[in-house]
Design a binder for these strands. Structure first.
Lengths: 221, 221
DNA sequence: CTATGTGAATTTATTCACAGCA
DNA sequence: TGCTGTGAATAAATTCACATAG
């Protein structure tokens, strides 16, 4: 009993030590984007202050965020950009290519399929599905659109992420199918809550909801 | 001087009293979406618990959020849905129609223009601009695409929101043009920071950045 | 002398527990 | 009795200040 309670306490301390704030995880991709930009332009080092100015955030926020993972920088010098990119990629598990399947190739789906911005984070949209016979067989961005009934065994095809871009009424069943096919994460563009097993992470992006809080912050005259 | 300091203190107290957490503002559109859905299906009342279950959040979070604005509900009964919708719309300043101008009618821009989800919050994309002669003059969703050089005097056209869906390299100049034309808020889809005067609120949506934190939360096996 | 890394202080947000009203 | 509304308690995130390393 004493042993147990000690073990639990220890586990608690270790977990607490390793616990990364969600807000930090949310910011890491932003830092990464900036760092990749700097890397492309050939820069080798950067200080927290300069990176902060560039991204319009606070330097101490950046240092605090990085400090959760160990010593990335060199005191008096700054951060080595290449090294930092590698570190962040590893933390976010972006150091391996993630293959994704898109479901729903309408206006938004097409935009997603054509969007180049995913590649810098190591994402590859490797498959696309739709229910509309008119678009099935078509090729967009080197991806041939398949019948949605073929949506299974994604795990076998090395696909671990699903992207939902279907109408709201079909969103949940699409999610269910994706889970069944073995994806471990879902990016949902439908304006609704998606239920999924705990082991599958769902992130919902609702463009309208972000727009909806804009007027609140706009001056009235 | 004494008077001044008292006034300031009073203003401070009043402002503190009225200060709404940003996180609450972020959640209001989510509640609103759920309530609109309920309203459509004819329901009249709902309790914080039922709404919470529906949206997969906590009841006390909902009650706390609403409590910043006064008494919306009836103890022992719940909330009147219609009344609540009106209240939230007013808080978010969605009780007037907001006309928006879209700049950049590529894949993403087209999807935005075709997206019906904005309407429930009272948004109306009233104008669209592009630089490509091939699309200028075309009509999508009843909006005729204009030459981007015509992008000015949006205020005169009663447009107060700008939506940026151009390549990153043109994002900042587009924002500058929108500000000059008199918009008070900008929704930016370009993967970069946008500088704007303080009086203009900018909200950036970078789809890739949201996707980028998905693998972190996905189980490794 | 410069810029990181981190405990401590502060601020902000969430959760709880229950008084108070229908 | 049922459900809201809200102070108080807790937890989380941000900001600060400075010791520390190059």
């Amino acid at each position: 009993m004493n042993v147990n309670s000690n073990t639990n306490r220890l586990a608690g301390i270790l977990m607490r030590y390793h616990k990364i704030p969600d807000e930090t995880i949310r910011r890491l991709p932003v830092y990464l984007r900036g760092l990749l930009f700097l890397s492309e332009s050939g820069q080798e080092r950067i200080s927290s202050r300069n990176l902060a100015d560039m991204l319009s955030v606070n330097p101490w926020q950046i240092r605090k965020d990085f400090s959760y993972f160990g010593d990335f920088g060199t005191r008096g010098v700054g951060y080595n950009i290449t090294k930092l990119i590698k570190h962040i990629n590893k933390i976010l598990k972006l150091n391996v290519v993630h293959r994704a399947a898109l479901v729903g190739v309408g206006n938004l789906g097409t935009a997603v399929l054509a969007y180049a911005g995913f590649r810098i984070y190591g994402f590859d949209i490797a498959a696309a599905f739709d229910i509309n016979p008119k678009v099935i067989g078509k090729k967009i961005n080197n991806v041939t659109i398949e019948d949605v009934s073929k949506l299974r065994m994604l795990k076998k095809r090395n696909i671990d992420i699903g992207i939902i871009a279907v109408p709201r009424s079909a969103a949940q069943e699409t999610a269910d199918a994706l889970v069944k096919a073995g994806v471990k994460g879902i990016l949902n563009f439908s304006p609704c809550y998606i239920a999924a097993p705990k082991k599958v992470k769902v992130i919902t992006i609702d463009i309208a909801i972000d727009l909806a809080r804009l007027p609140y912050y706009m001056p009235s005259n």
